[in-house]
Design a protein around this nucleic acid. Sequence first.
DNA 1: TTATCTTTGCGTAAAGTTTACACAAACATA
DNA 2: TATGTTTGTGTAAACTTTACGCAAAGATAA
Lengths: 241, 241
Amino acid sequence: MAKKGQYVYEYPHPAVTADCVVFGYDGKELKVLLIKRGKEKEASTTAYVGEWALPGGFLDADSDANVAFAASRELKEETGLTIPAGDLHEVASFSEINRDPRERVITIAHYALVKLSEVKAATDAERAEWFSWDAIPALAFDHDKILRVAFSRLKQDIHFQPVGFELLPEIFTMPQLQNLYESILEVKFDRRNFANKMKHFGILEEVDDGTPRRGTRTPIKYRFHKENYDRLKRKGFQLEF
Amino acid sequence: MAKKGQYVYEYPHPAVTADCVVFGYDGKELKVLLIKRGKEKEASTTAYVGEWALPGGFLDADSDANVAFAASRELKEETGLTIPAGDLHEVASFSEINRDPRERVITIAHYALVKLSEVKAATDAERAEWFSWDAIPALAFDHDKILRVAFSRLKQDIHFQPVGFELLPEIFTMPQLQNLYESILEVKFDRRNFANKMKHFGILEEVDDGTPRRGTRTPIKYRFHKENYDRLKRKGFQLEF
DNA sequence: TTATCTTTGCGTAAAGTTTACACAAACATA
DNA sequence: TATGTTTGTGTAAACTTTACGCAAAGATAA
């Protein structure tokens, strides 16, 4: 981390932060990871202390390799979550002149997708907390706006790339997969058509856990066929619905 | 513009620039506007003098309302082109630690679409020049990378939004429209299927310029039905091909 | 315990979309 | 004058999407 000191420039420079919208899915609802703001270490004054905000923090201009790296580093520091910089999807910059009361701050927003199940334990519950998508509290700065933009980006991306693997537990059911898509796209699909389409992509593998299925009420369990999934992800697809 | 002086911060701050990839279309080829780098006014040292680069420049942290505004302002200063900040599409940030030899500089890349015909006159030919997409010279900094990313973003956006109005002259022909789409998407379409599809969207209006068409060799002239075009743009569509 | 509701799986017919393709007219070129 | 190129138009076949019915068994309520 940069040492506090005197950094002098001939022209005014903004501070740059990297913020993360971390999406998780518990099998029922889309969730977002937020942190409770404490005292800032890096700025001369504090702002929005005690309020909920997106995890993120200042880029260290002297040592962070790039913005995504700064985002990953801050995420780890603030929430305990380890997400490699390469798994962060850049969303957009937010640069309005007064978005931070302390000084000019430009933020580069990112989003990430995590398996909620595997991550809950590793999360630093002291400061971080998961919120249901439709129960987000008031947020510091312009973070509500960032959240909306990140979500609409995810919504857009999902048309071109499969998105379940990153969010679902390894073994899941068709209704869970459908609910995930419905949560992100904010629409309802016909159960049967959805299943047919998903099966056609060839990225699903039935899991045979020995238990003979006695009726249709207990859903079939699937996992992703990783190889086909990755191929489809690279190649892209058209999810039209 | 910010006065040169002493700007002091407790932590290191990067400089922030806004760069623009301006796409134009002359009825045959996709083109990009580049500038020849001269002496920098704003940085202590110069870099890449005499080389071609994307238009753009430093955000003035004290006075630019936001990054898009800075991009618009710099574009005007460097090329004479007036493009409102609202017409710039943000692409991504580029923040690798050594992308500028002078100091840490993070750039926010944008793209814009302009009618080449209407703009040629207004462009400051002293410094700016249009290059065909497949004859781009070596560029300063990481601008070739930015160019590629901006292009692929345009390519992606075109699947969801009609894009001809911004690039074509007011009156154009079906082959021109098709060629534009083929240039951006880098594929070939069947002439007849392309025309059918475009007509179905209901955004084209035949232009009757009095001249009776004597044969099929002279193409029919179209203009966009602005109202339908804007509605389609807001609503989005699926261009699948 | 029984009746009813809900969840899941499977499959098909109808509507819509995409793809592939041929011919005729006139301008351009050799 | 002959040949090639450009443009317009329309249709049949293949494929995709949509809408929907039925049966089995667990869940719930009486």
